[in-house]
Write a protein that binds this DNA or RNA. Structure first.
Length: 643
RNA sequence: GCCGGGGUAGCUCAGUCGGUAGAGCGACGCACUCGUAAUGCGUAGGUCACGGGUUCGAUUCCCGUCUCCGGCUCCA
């Protein structure tokens, strides 16, 4: 009985029933056969040597595809577990999935893995790979599987939970064997270990079983696997590139900020150039908010604990707050982890009218959150940071229009800083845990959805992920090397107006409760700077660069002229340095390039005589003898702020 | 907070099997006055993170604390 196989290009062919993906690939061509690691039958991934007994669509998965790498990495994880079980008798193994760019496996062993252990394991893996052990699939009943894994408590737990979670489908489990090694696995796998051409172990780390810090901490080994040595090398190079962009390193190199150990973890100080960069960003933020009908307010850094009790923070997030200080013998104060209660107090300071709404209060508000010591990461995750924070108080019927304007504003800001790729998450009501009426939630979620659609922003629906007090939109950007960062949050809040009993007078002089929208566009200024630095690898666009041009006099006798040129540029509000140091021209240029200054001007005898300069823009060749007027014009253009 | 690895000059790092340390870059000085990614010579600079213990003697070994890095967990 032949079966009819259709291919992704729409063509169809007949094969003997029981044919395999490997045979199909071979029938198409030897190169495909060699590159194949698995197949897809009617969309489901299967092993290359699994027999196909009915008509259907077949797609051959090659090692160079994302699917293929996934399978490669999964198989590499098995080989790693096999190596560890060989080398460390008594080791218990837990789970080992493929992840972005690699894989890991978790083990319980007597002692944590050292770097030397990784070398040993990698060596053993190479042996297993060289032996070209075939991967074979087997279906076991739960009882059989429990026997096979009798001395593996984590596997036993997984087998038992299959029964629970997957209902009828859990009566059998599949396992994969290569030689004596058996692992629970859905598969598919590469046909045999020799297909693993480029595998490298990266590091070991502690990781909790099932991600739960109350359960045993296991030893995780991370590795990576690629279809070829050259792809592996390219990956390692990408890692190195990413490391060069590290904002902590660049912050030091470019003299922007530092993290003095004397201050404590997660607390940065901003040096003059970083301070200037911050100021530029903050000025932009204030200016654009004023232009968008926000009112700027300012509030203190601490408040009585009672305020945080009313807002609910002490009940829900006390562990994220700095501990209290008791003053005047009995009154406890707390550093602020959020700005909202202060803005709410401004709203509530007097009776409000519908005529004032929407009322948009904006503040660059510095907050302090007690982040656990292990999570602090430069500017990206700090214990003190400044939010571009606003709370908008509006009528229920204003929510939709307000959110739409807000999302436009958000995207404008992010585009102004050079980000071009956006994605959003829409987090909706958790049916188990929410306050406010269903009707209000539906309305707000609908408003958020409409705003996303009006802005033409692709979004993922995160159902049930909303906070208990309202739905929200998070906006993510992709940076220059493809990493995703969450920046903006637009959060509808039904709870705080209730907690603080906020009201406004309607046009019929009745009292209604306003709805509140929390929002931060950049999120935290500190983190935003960190992301900008990594996005641009330190080479900030002209309008953000603390130093926009360096003027290099060729010899001391040109310093005076250099100063004159600097004055001309400064009169156009350009930020200029004259490098009058006792160094060669080459060295001074090297410094300016290393510092990523957008423009370098070189002035010598001919320039003094002709009123010109040599102009070297970042990333471009030098132009000699450019008139100072043209230099000014060019730099003004290069350094113009987006608005 | 948890697991592992670190903390030596302003920076990047080497070193001391226990006898108080070195390089490159940077800084400073002198010479050079130079046309596009490192001019030469010289000088200064260290409580070897901090506190305790062991020892005749600790930067080195042990314990604690702070702090950094990689993960885990967390991220209102």
């Amino acid at each position: 009985m032949p079966v009819t196989i259709t291919f992704p290009d729409g063509s169809a062919r007949q094969y003997e029933a029981g044919t395999t993906g490997a045979e199909i690939a071979a029938s198409i061509g030897p190169r495909l056969a060699k590159a194949a690691v698995a197949a897809r039958f009617d969309g489901a991934a299967i092993d290359l040597h699994a027999p196909i007994t009915q008509d259907g669509a077949v797609e051959v998965i090659t090692a160079a595809s994302e699917d293929g790498r996934h399978i490669l990495r999964h198989s590499a994880a098995h080989v790693m577990a096999q190596a560890v079980l060989d080398l460390y008798p008594g080791a218990k193994f837990a789970i080992g999935p493929p992840i972005t760019d690699g894989f890991y496996y978790d083990f319980e062993v007597a002692a944590p893995f050292t770097p030397d252990d990784l070398v040993r394991i990698e060596k053993r893996m190479a042996e297993i790979i060289a032996e070209d052990q075939p991967f074979e699939r087997d279906e076991l009943s739960v009882a059989e599987a429990l026997e096979v894994f009798a001395d593996q408590p984590f596997k036993t737990e997984i087998i038992e939970s299959v029964d629970e979670d997957e209902g009828a489908g859990g009566s059998e489990v599949s396992v994969y064997r290569n030689f004596a090694f058996v692992d629970l696995c859905r598969g598919p796998h590469v046909p045999s270990t020799k297909r693993l051409k480029a595998v490298k172990l990266m590091r070991s780390a502690g990781a909790y079983w099932r991600g739960d810090e109350n359960r045993p901490q296991l030893q995780r080994i991370y590795g990576t696997a690629w279809e070829s040595k050259s792809e592996l090398d390219a990956y390692l190079e990408r890692l190195e590139e990413a490391e060069k962009r590290d904002h902590r390193k660049l912050g030091q190199d470019l003299e922007l900020y530092s993290f003095p150990q004397e201050l404590g973890s997660g607390l940065a100080v901003w040096h003059p150039k970083g301070g200037l960069l911050r100021t530029i960003i903050e000025d932009y933020s204030r200016r654009t908010h004023l232009e968008h009908d926000y009112q700027i307010v300012s509030t203190p850094h601490l408040a009585k604990a009672d305020l945080w009790q009313t807002s609910g923070h002490l009940d829900f997030y006390a562990e994220g707050m700095y501990p209290g200080m008791v003053l005047d013998e009995s009154t406890e104060y707390r550093m602020k982890p959020m700005n909202c209660p202060f803005h709410i107090l401004i709203y509530g300071n007097r009776g409000r009218s519908y005529r004032e709404l929407p009322l948009r209060l904006f503040e660059l508000g510095t907050v302090y959150r007690y982040e656990r010591s292990g999570v602090i990461h430069g500017l990206m995750r700090a214990r003190g940071f400044t939010q571009d924070d606003s709370h908008i108080f509006c009528e229920e019927n204003d929510i939709a229009g307000e959110l739409q304007n807000l999302l436009d504003f958000t995207l404008m800001v992010l585009r102004d800083f050079g980000f071009t790729e956006f994605e959003a998450d829409l987090s909706t009501k958790d049916p188990e845990k929410y306050i406010g009426s269903d009707e209000l939630w539906d309305k707000a979620e609908e408003a958020l959805r409409l705003a996303l659609e009006a802005a033409d922003l692709p979004y993922n629906l995160a159902e049930g992920e909303g906070a208990f007090y309202g739905p929200k939109i998070d906006v993510h950007i992709r940076d220059a090397i493809g990493r995703r960062w969450q920046l903006s949050t637009l959060q509808v809040d039904f709870a705080q107006p209730e907690n603080f009993d906020l009201l406004y007078a309607t046009d019929h002089n009745t009292r209604e409760r306003p709805v509140m929208i929390h929002r931060a566009l950049m999120g935290s200024i500190e983190r935003f700077v960190g992301i900008l630095i990594e996005h641009y690898a330190g080479a900030l666009p002209g309008w953000l660069a603390p130093v926009q041009a360096t003027i290099v006099p060729v010899a001391d006798r040109h310093i005076e002229y250099a100063e004159q040129v600097a004055t001309r540029l400064e009169s156009q509000s350009l930020r200029v340095e004259v490098d009058g140091s006792d160094e060669t021209v080459g060295e001074k240029i090297r410094r300016a390039i290393t510092q990523k200054h957008p423009a370098i001007l070189v002035v010598g005898d001919s320039d003094v005589a002709a009123g010109t300069a040599g102009l070297r823009l970042r990333g471009e060749d030098e132009k000699r003898g450019v008139s100072v007027d043209d230099v000014v014009g060019k730099l003004v253009e290069v350094c113009r702020a987006p608005r």
